[in-house]
Design a protein around this nucleic acid. Structure first.
Length: 750
DNA sequence: GTAGGGTTAG
């Protein structure tokens, strides 16, 4: 036990000289040595020389011996022990603090060591507390070593006020205000607080800048996105005869990766080789990352194969490289080959799957992870929640939420946002609202996610109310917030509100409307039938209208049967995206609705000649934690016989209720309507049939579809909800439909 | 006897 080893202040052993005269029970050899040696070179201390190799147990043993020998009363030897227990890889900071608190006379070195350890420990605030204790309750004053450690703590915390106060103390002392170590740490500190101009000001004040000064300021600019200024300084440093080193090149490589400039990448690589820059694993990793980001996996592979030592970052960087090129199999192979996988490697592959449209694989890998000896962290959970959102996998999502609670994972804004997004997109808006109201930290992303959730469920008014509350809470909206607000207006038909918020964006909120925001307005106005005004918004765009603006106009024309304007919009859209099959389909629907069957036929031929295929319609339904996938006319499901029997029964009961299939829309923006029967076999109908078989009332049937739901399926879902007395919650590409008692939450406006 | 700057996943 630690506490037994620690002397209480009253039991502090007598000074070392007294020890020499005692006749204790300890062995003769020990006494003999004690007589001959000073405390500074007592042989016990030699055990602490190599403290980085000592584990916690060994340190406690030494502590015990020193206590018995009375060595802790001597400031120097006590400090040696404190270094070991606060700086060794198996450091135990609470233990170090206890030891420190029992030292009769800690010297300044000891204070510095403890502050140093806490500055890079799990809670850097403790370093600041120690610093103020040093000022108030010790006979010492901070020296040129104390400041860099304390400033580091302030940087870790991005504590601008504390750091500025430290800077103030430093400025008063002629000795400290010109100390290069202190000044360099201030450069880093201001950068950590995102005060780049203050960083630059400190840098410019230094009369004799060394390589660390240059590196600090170049890194600050690189991380703050001011790449060209950083590269300019990199050139200037040579003019000032400061030779760049490996650390400089890490930042330069990182900038080059962000710029994605392969030519520059090769220049940097040969610069390193020609100037004899020291090789290091970190630099090699940075170069790997640079090549991956510049899109040259060949160069990355060459370097990777030539590296003599690799760590999990090297492997993970390569893995991401393969995944970015869409080579997910190669990424997986690399993952399997890795000699050591840390949680970041798992996260990288899970995120790769999740972000490249393979959410199912992401969840499979998450299950593998749980059987391996890695522990999911917040990044993992964010990625897996996003995979659930994509799949509409509510049960898995709930399970992850439970996991978060059970393991006391901190609900930071990232996780909160992901949970709200998951519950919203999996159709359980109440749970999303619960999460939202249960947290007390809400940043702009949390608010925006909740607004988006309400919007996609058609609860536009509530979304706008929440937008008002967000401002009462003094959280500034960003670009995404406005997109979500407009989405709410669009789904609920709130035209006036849309216009109002759009007009306020720049003057009130200081956010210039982006092309996406203009497209939202075109959508809001177009859906409401205000095609002329929608066109005016397009014409007034300060940037060239993108595909989304023309797409929104085209969709509106299809709803309101405006062939002429629809053709124009489609033409513009195809100029920008020649292979956008959706555009052909919507135009064809427009022709069909207006009875222009010749035009429908020629459009079909055009599509065929261009060998454009529609994206296959696909519906997902989660039952007991497993996600089942249905394509149109799918016969691959193990329960296919029962599913098709159920479909027949549905058809009979619907007919009895007077339902007539709506075959007019042969080419909805839905899914390939190859044959007559296809309508009857749309993926969402298969999923509904499966849902009826495999779940029981009152649980709603939850379905996620990749495309928009067609008129016919929408009608069928309404009827099923009343005939079978089952709620259906269907998520399509754009929004949610809650079917209950024969009607839909979208009020047939979608 | 002590110090400052760096790479991956979101």
């Amino acid at each position: 036990m630690a506490t037994r080893l620690l002397p209480t202040p009253s039991a502090v052993p007598p000074p070392i000289r007294a020890l020499n005269t005692t006749t204790s029970n300890s062995s003769k050899r020990s006494d003999y040595l004690a007589v001959k040696t000073k405390a500074e070179d007592h042989p016990v201390l030699a055990l602490l020389d190599d403290y980085s190799r000592l584990d916690a147990k060994a340190i406690r043993r030494i502590h015990g011996r020193m206590l018995r020998l009375g060595l802790l009363g001597h400031p120097y030897s006590a400090s040696r022990l404190l270094v070991a227990c606060s700086l060794s890889p198996s450091a135990d900071l609470p233990y170090a603090r206890q030891l420190f608190d029992h030292l009769p006379a800690p010297n300044l070195f000891t204070w510095n060591t403890l502050i140093r350890a806490h500055a890079s420990g799990p809670d850097p605030r403790l370093a600041l507390f120690l610093f103020s204790r040093l000022l108030r309750h010790s006979p010492h004053s901070p020296d040129k070593f104390t400041f860099p450690f304390t400033i580091k703590a302030a940087a870790e915390l991005s504590a601008l006020r504390d750091g500025t106060a430290l800077h103030g103390m430093i400025a008063k002392s002629p000795l400290f205000r010109s100390d290069i170590f202190i000044l360099n740490s201030l450069i880093h500190f201001y950068a950590a607080c995102r005060e780049l101009d203050l960083s630059l000001r400190v840098f410019e004040m230094i009369s004799e800048r060394d390589v660390v000064s240059w590196n600090s300021v170049i890194t600050a600019l690189a991380q703050g996105g001011r790449w060209d200024e950083a590269l300019q300084l990199f050139e200037e440093m040579e003019n000032e005869n400061v030779r760049p080193n490996d650390v400089t090149m890490v930042s330069v490589a990182s900038i080059c990766g962000k710029k994605g400039d392969l030519e520059l990448a090769k220049q940097i690589h040969s610069y390193i080789e020609q100037n004899g820059i020291r090789q290091s694993l970190i630099l090699d990793n940075a170069l790997l990352d640079m090549y991956v980001k510049c899109g040259s996996l060949e160069e990355a592979e060459l370097l990777f194969d030539s590296m003599t030592s690799k760590d999990s970052i090297s492997w993970t960087t390569m893995l991401v490289g393969y995944a970015k090129l869409g080579c997910l199999d190669a990424a997986r192979r690399l993952f399997d080959q890795m000699p050591k996988r840390d949680i970041a490697s798992w996260n990288a592959l899970i995120s790769c799957y999740e972000q490249s449209g393979h959410p199912k694989e992401a969840l499979d890998l998450f299950h593998e992870l749980q059987h391996a000896d890695a522990k999911p962290d917040q990044v993992t959970l964010v990625a897996v929640l996003s995979a659930c959102s994509q799949l509409g996998a509510l049960e898995v999502g709930c399970w992850i939420h439970a996991y978060i609670k059970k393991n006391n994972v901190e609900l930071n804004c990232h996780i909160t946002t992901s949970l709200i997004d998951m519950y919203s997109k999996c159709g359980d808006l109440d749970k999303a609202l619960n999460v939202f109201s249960s947290v007390n930290k809400r940043d702009v992303f949390v608010w925006s996610a909740m607004i988006a959730g309400l919007a996609m469920h058609g609860r536009g008014r509530e979304a706008l109310n929440l937008f008002g509350k967000m401002q009462e809470a003094k959280v500034k909206p960003n670009m995404v917030t406005f997109t979500n607000v407009f989405c709410a207006c669009s789904h609920a038909g709130l035209v006036d509100e849309g216009r109002l918020y759009f007009s306020q964006m720049l003057p009130v909120y200081g956010i210039a409307p982006s092309a996406e925001h203009y497209s939202c307005m075109v959508d809001i106005l177009g859906r409401a039938g205000l095609l002329e005004e929608a066109t005016e918004y397009i014409e007034s765009m300060p940037m060239p209208p993108g595909a989304s603006a023309w797409g929104a106009l085209l969709g509106a024309c299809a709803i309101h049967k405006n062939v002429e304007l629809g053709e124009l919009a489609c033409e513009r859209l195809l100029e920008l995206e020649p292979r956008n099959h959706g555009a052909y389909v919507i135009l064809s629907n427009l022709y069909a609705r207006s009875g222009k069957w010749d035009a429908v036929a020629s459009l079909r031929k055009l599509m065929k000649d261009a060998s454009l295929k529609k994206e296959a319609g696909c519906s997902l339904i989660e039952v007991h934690g497993a996600v089942h996938e249905f394509l149109v006319g799918d016969i691959s499901h193990p329960l296919k016989e029962r599913i098709y029997l159920q479909l027949d029964e549905i058809a009979l009961r619907l007919k009895a209720a007077g339902y007539v299939p709506n075959r007019k829309l042969v080419l909805q923006d839905i899914e390939e309507d190859v044959k007559e029967k296809a309508l009857y076999l749309h993926s969402e109908k298969l999923a509904i049939a499966f849902g009826l078989i495999s779940t029981c009332s009152p649980a709603p049937i939850r379905i996620t579809k990749n495309l928009r739901v067609c008129d016919d399926c929408h009608l069928v879902a309404k009827l099923v909800s009343s005939i079978y007395n089952r709620d259906i919650i269907l998520r399509d590409r754009y929004r949610f439909h809650h079917f209950t008692g024969g009607s839909c939450s979208c009020m047939d406006y979608w």
